[in-house]
C-alpha cells in the first residue's frame, strides 16, 4: 500500500509541480471504486468487477467454513467446524429469542444475511481489498429487500391485522391517529437506516484508515515525518483493531434488526 501511495505522490508532484510541496496523496475514497476485473470498457450489469471478486471470495469463505468445515460431521469438532457451529448457534439463538419459535423457519434467510455481511466485512479488512458492504447499492438491496419481504410476509400472515402494528390500542384515543402517522413514517424509515448504518460504518472506518495511511509516508518527504509517521502507523493499527470489532458488530446489528423486523411481521400486536 505504501508503495502505491508513494508512486501516486510522485505522479501528483510531477503533475502539479512546486505548489504541491507536501506531496502527500489523499485518495481515501479510491478504495471504493468499482473497476473491471478484465480489460477496458464500460461497466455493464454483467461485467465481472472487483465487487464480483470479493463477493465471490465471501462465498468461498462461507463454503470453506460451513461446508468443508463440517464435512467430517465430527462429534468432537475440528476448529473450522467449531466456527461453523458457533455461528449457527449464535444466529439460531438470536432468531429464536427475538422473532420467536415460528421465526426459526426463516433461520436460513437470516443466516444468509449474517454470514454474507460478516464475511464481506472481514475480507474487506485485508489490505488492498474491496468491501462490497461499503456500498450503499449493496446494503440498500439487503435492507430494502428484507423490508419488502417482511412487509409482504406480515400481510400474508396477518392480513389486515398487520396494520395493528401502527395502531396503538393502549394509547389514548385522541393520540392514536397521530401515533399511527409517526409509526408509519418510522416503519418506512427502517430500511433506510438499516442499510445506511452498515454502509456508512464500513465506509467511514475504511476511509479514516486510508487518510492515516496517506500520512504514513511523510517521513520520506519532510523532517516532521519523524513524528507524523509513527503516529499515523499507530493510529492505523488502533483503527484497524476497532474496525475488526465494527465489522462484527455491524453484521450483528444488521442481523438482529432483521430479526426484530421479522418479529413485527409475525407478531404485529404490541
Amino acid at each position: 500500500m505504501t508503495d502505491v501511495a508513494t508512486e501516486e505522490v510522485v505522479e501528483g508532484a510531477a503533475e502539479h509541480g512546486a505548489e504541491h510541496g507536501a506531496g502527500l496523496a489523499f485518495h481515501p475514497l479510491d478504495q471504493f471504486k468499482i473497476t473491471r476485473l478484465f480489460g477496458e470498457g464500460p461497466i455493464e450489469w454483467y461485467t465481472p468487477t472487483n465487487a464480483t471478486l470479493w463477493m465471490a471470495l465471501a462465498v468461498v469463505a462461507i463454503v470453506v467454513i460451513f461446508v468443508f468445515g463440517s464435512k467430517g460431521r465430527a462429534l468432537i469438532p475440528s476448529r473450522l467446524q467449531s466456527i461453523g457451529e458457533m455461528a449457527y448457534g449464535f444466529v439460531y439463538k438470536m432468531v429464536e429469542d427475538v422473532a420467536g419459535h415460528d421465526g426459526a423457519k426463516f433461520f436460513p434467510l437470516i443466516m444468509t444475511l449474517f454470514v454474507f455481511i460478516l464475511s464481506a466485512n472481514m475480507l474487506g479488512l485485508i489490505p488492498g481489498s474491496f468491501t462490497p458492504t461499503s456500498h450503499i447499492a449493496v446494503t440498500a438491496i439487503l435492507g430494502f429487500g428484507f423490508f419488502i419481504f417482511v412487509t409482504l410476509l406480515g400481510f400474508a400472515k396477518n392480513g389486515a391485522h398487520f396494520l395493528g402494528l401502527f395502531w396503538m390500542s393502549d394509547a389514548p384515543l385522541i393520540l392514536r391517529p397521530i401515533i399511527a402517522v409517526i409509526e408509519v413514517i418510522s416503519y418506512f424509515v427502517r430500511p433506510v437506516s438499516h442499510s445506511i448504518r452498515l454502509a456508512g460504518n464500513i465506509m467511514a472506518g475504511h476511509a479514516v484508515m486510508k487518510v492515516f495511511a496517506a500520512f504514513a509516508p511523510m517521513i520520506l518527504i519532510s523532517a516532521i515525518g519523524v513524528v507524523v509517521t509513527p503516529v499515523s502507523v499507530l493510529a492505523i493499527t488502533a483503527i484497524y483493531a476497532l474496525e475488526v470489532l465494527v465489522a462484527f458488530i455491524q453484521a450483528y446489528v444488521f442481523t438482529i434488526l432483521a430479526c426484530v423486523y421479522l418479529k413485527d411481521a409475525l407478531h404485529p400486536g404490541h
Binding site: M55, I62, T112, V115
Partner: peptide, 25 residues
Amino acid sequence: TFPNQIFWLLVTLVVIYFVLSRVAL
C-alpha cells in the same frame, strides 16, 4: 455501477442461501 453491484449481489445471496439451506445448515 449500481446494476452491476445489484446483479452480483443477488447472485451471491442466492448462492449463499442455497449452500446454507441445502447443505451446511
